[in-house]
Design a protein around this nucleic acid. Structure first.
Lengths: 143, 143
DNA sequence: ATTCTTGCAAACATTTTGCAGGGCA
DNA sequence: TGCCCTGCAAAATGTTTGCAAGAAT
C-alpha cells in the first residue's frame, strides 16, 4: 500500500500515462519502455517499472495479472474481461458486460471478504488458427 | 505442444504428482521442491520445473496462470474457480459451480475460437483482515 | 541398448533496488 | 529549499537449458 505523499507529475510519469491511455492493447513494461523511449530517449526501464507501479496504486491505470508470467498494463481502469490466445498470449478486450454480483454465487463461507473478480477467456486467435492449420498441411505433405 | 514420445515414470515424476494430488493448496515450483525434497533430498529444482511442465502438458495436473507473477500448480485438473487474497496472495478454491456456456455472453466476433475460461475472485483473507485491523489500531495509538 | 531423465550449474528473463544527481512543488 | 524522482547499474527473483552421467523401458 502506498504511503500518503505528494506525488509529482514528472514528464516521464505523464507520458507513460498518456501513451497507455491512448493504446487499446495491453503492453508489458518492456513494450511501454520502447514506446515511451521515442519521446524520452534516455528514460530508464527502472523508471518505467516504478511509474507503472505508482500509477496502478493510485488507480490511474490497471495492472493486469492474468495468464502468463509477465505483468501487463491497461489504460482502461474499469473492470472488464479479456480473451487470451493460449498460443501466442495475445490479449484483447472481451466485448461483454460485467457480471454484477457474481460473488453471490459463492457457496458457504470462504473466510474472504470479496472485493472484485477477474474473468479471462482462453482461446485461439485467428492468426494462430491460420498458422496452425498451415503447419498441419505442411506436416501432412510427403517428404 | 509436447511431442509424442514415451514418457517414463521416474521416482521424481511420480512423487511430484502424488504430493501435488494430496495437497489442497496451490503451491509454486519452489514450494513443491521443498516438499518433494523430504522424499528425494537430492532432487534439483530444474527437475521439478521440468516435471511440472510435462505433467501439465499431459493433463495430469493443472498449471494455474492467475493473478501474480509466479506460476502455481494444482493437482485438481477440473476447471474450477479460485479466490485470491490481494494482500498475501494466498489462493483457495472457490466453492461455486462452473458456469457453463459463459462464452455465449460474448458479443460480436472476437476473432477467437474460445476454448475455456478462468474466473478468479479477489478479496482479503481472514488472516490479513486481522493483521490489517491490528495495524490500524497500532497507528491510531498516540506515541 | 536405447533414449528419456536427472543433477548441477550456468544462462536467461523479468522485476526490484541503492545511490548520487536532478527537477518538481 | 525540501524531498520526490530519475538514470544507471547491480542485485534479486523466477524459470529455462546444456551437458554428462544415470535410470527406465
Amino acid at each position: 500500500m502506498r504511503k500518503t505523499q505528494t506525488l509529482r507529475l514528472t514528464r516521464q510519469r505523464s507520458i507513460i500515462l498518456q501513451e497507455l491511455q491512448n493504446l487499446k492493447t495491453h503492453p508489458n513494461a518492456d513494450e511501454i519502455y520502447e514506446i515511451v523511449r521515442k519521446d524520452i530517449p534516455r528514460i530508464s526501464l527502472g523508471t518505467v517499472y516504478r511509474n507503472l507501479e505508482i500509477l496502478s496504486d493510485i488507480g490511474q491505470i490497471q495492472k493486469l495479472e492474468l495468464g502468463g508470467t509477465v505483468k501487463r498494463f491497461d489504460g482502461n481502469t474499469e473492470n472488464h474481461y479479456h480473451i487470451r490466445c493460449v498460443h501466442c498470449n495475445k490479449i484483447v478486450d472481451a466485448s461483454m458486460d460485467l457480471i454484477k454480483d457474481l460473488e453471490k454465487n459463492l457457496n458457504g463461507n470462504s473466510g474472504f471478504t470479496i472485493l472484485d473478480h477477474r474473468l479471462e477467456f482462453l482461446g485461439i486467435c485467428r492468426d494462430c488458427e491460420e498458422s496452425l492449420s498451415n503447419l498441419e498441411e505442411e506436416i501432412a505433405k510427403p517428404m
